[in-house]
Design a protein around this nucleic acid. Structure first.
Length: 528
DNA sequence: GTAGGGTTAG
């Protein structure tokens, strides 16, 4: 330990090493484990060779394994990050790619698959570290020896806003090696740009492509919808030479997310009737929120019937969970109970339980929600932050204040869930509804500054209005207006509080401020 | 080889 501290000069690196010691055990290396982990950790944390980083260390590198062996291992476990990282480490520490006498095509396959597996896993940026290592440490694998697969996978790995700087450089390299007209490579680039929100660049790539596959069109649609360019997406959709269920699902999702549920359902029918395309599970998962938004139990039942007919409800837990949520949002709690009873505990996952708890919560059934929570724990599942949020919401809507506060403590202390703004919001709402306004104000003022928002103060303002508390109401109004000034409802709430105590002039002054500050409030309406 | 995915305060 002292030696390590001396070498690395920091305890953090030591912790990092310890993690790697655990990770290395899977590869069962022939060379000493601690030593390999030591080298590995240093190598992966710097992505340079050990001799560059620590020239003073005289450590014999491990003998390189045959690339075919590593490739088979990777293909056998494509979605296991530990194995992937060990292979990454082995390539670096053994200097595998420094041996040009190895079979280069197998090496390239190995390289491509490392990039591909990283790009699909939880840490796609490690694909870029790996690529960077091969380019900067004098391996024979510099970019001219890469193929179309390498560039397509590298583009996928950099398809998020934090990696755009890399993606742009990659685009230049693609030009340099002459893959600017290759469908897979360009589709990869298109995905990189569109998922990062660089829609102008994405459109440039898209319109410069001499040939496009159906996937190319779908990738472009995905980007447009993700960045809320639904009208543009629809015009691209209308230009498509042919459309798959994925294209339809994307556009339906666009309308669902834009709060246009009727349009989403119209498109859903059109897909089946005009194009004769059968919906998949994902299509159903996309229209469920649209149905919930309309709140019509008849449509909900027919969607359920369709899911049963296609066998989706019995084969896909996501469909069952989404149905629990859908029935709850349509106010049919009897169906939620039926699902809970009929679904065997072995099939229920955390989302099933959480959806039911959240369903009870939104229908004001606090006791049933807590009972479901207990049953979930008996079934051996550990609640997560969403489960706790649903439980807190249930306590808030069911008036179970003490229980709610205990759950908050349990969440933080026992389950080590770090509360986010939604959890704090629930606690504030819970205390506020119960008229415990001082405590609610105290909680709100103690919410960490970086997460505090206007919604949380607005919730409290609503409670002050219900309980006619002018003093706290005025303080809270000040807080809300410091954060947001354009929300007309805030002025109305405070104005109502003032009317309640006969301060009509002050109330009018607040209402006038709505016009002065160009704040506005949509009049409420009811669908009942 | 490349595309769409269930629960989340007020």
């Amino acid at each position: 330990m002292i030696l390590m501290k001396k070498l690395f000069g920091s305890i953090t690196v030591y912790v990092h090493l310890e993690t790697w010691l655990g990770k290395m055990s899977l590869l069962k290396p022939k060379y000493p484990l601690s030593l390999s982990a030591f080298v590995t950790a240093a190598a992966i944390s710097t992505t340079t060779t050990i001799s560059h980083r620590f020239p003073c260390l005289e450590i014999a590198p491990p003998k390189p394994k045959h690339p075919q062996h590593l490739l088979s291992l990777l293909l056998k476990h494509p979605s296991q990050p530990k194995i992937l990282q060990q292979i990454h480490c082995h390539i670096i520490t053994s200097g595998l790619f420094h041996y040009p006498f190895h079979d280069t095509s197998t090496c390239l396959l190995l390289f491509n698959n490392v990039i591909r597996c990283y790009s699909r896993g939880p840490s796609p940026h490690l694909a870029l570290h790996f690529f960077s290592y091969t380019q900067h440490s004098h391996t024979f694998f510099t970019y001219p020896s890469l193929d179309t697969f390498s560039f397509a996978f590298l583009s996928n790995a950099s398809a998020n806003p934090t990696c755009t700087h890399f993606g742009i450089q990659l685009h230049a390299l693609i030009f340099k090696v002459g893959f600017q007209f290759h469908v897979y490579v360009q589709t990869g680039l298109l995905q990189m740009y569109s998922s990062s929100g660089l829609l102008v660049e994405a459109a440039q790539v898209f319109y410069q492509m001499p040939r496009r596959s159906l996937v190319t069109w779908n990738v472009f649609l995905t980007g447009l919808i993700k960045w809320e360019e639904v009208e543009l997406a629809l015009s691209v959709f209308n230009q498509m030479p042919s459309r798959s269920v994925v294209s339809w699902t994307l556009v339906i999702d666009g309308y669902t997310r834009r709060n246009q549920p009727t349009k989403a359902l119209t498109l859903f029918r059109e897909m089946i009737e005009v194009d004769g395309i059968e919906p998949t599970q994902v299509t159903l998962l996309t229209i469920f929120p649209a149905i919930a938004n309309i709140g019509c139990i008849k449509i909900c039942q027919s969607a359920h019937g369709y899911a049963e007919k296609r066998g989706f409800n019995s084969s896909d837990i996501r469909i069952t969970n989404a149905l629990i949520d859908l029935y709850a949002k349509c106010g049919c709690i009897a169906s939620v109970n039926r699902f809970l009873q009929e679904l065997p505990d072995q099939r229920k996952n955390l989302v099933s339980w959480t959806s039911a708890i959240s369903g009870f919560a939104m229908n004001g059934m606090g006791r049933e929600a807590l009972e479901t929570f207990e049953n979930m724990e008996k079934a051996g599942l550990r609640p997560n932050r969403v489960t706790f949020l649903s439980v807190l919401s249930a306590c808030s809507h069911g008036g179970l204040v003490e229980e709610g506060l205990n759950f908050f403590v349990k969440m933080v202390k026992d389950c080590e869930v770090v509360p986010d703004i939604k959890h704090y919001g629930c606690v504030i709402d819970m205390l506020g509804r119960a008229g415990r306004l001082e405590e609610a104000e105290k909680v709100a003022s103690e919410v960490p500054h970086e997460v505090a928002n206007a919604v949380m103060w607005r919730t409290l303002l609503g409670a002050c209005s219900v309980h006619n508390n002018v003093e706290i109401g005025q303080r809270v109004t000040r807080k809300v207006l410091e954060m947001e000034r354009g929300h007309g409802g805030d002025y109305v709430l405070m104005s109502n509080i003032l009317v309640g105590v006969g301060r009509f002039k002050d109330a009018q002054r607040l209402r006038d401020m709505i016009d002065e500050r160009i704040a506005f409030k949509l009049p409420g309406y009811s669908i009942v």
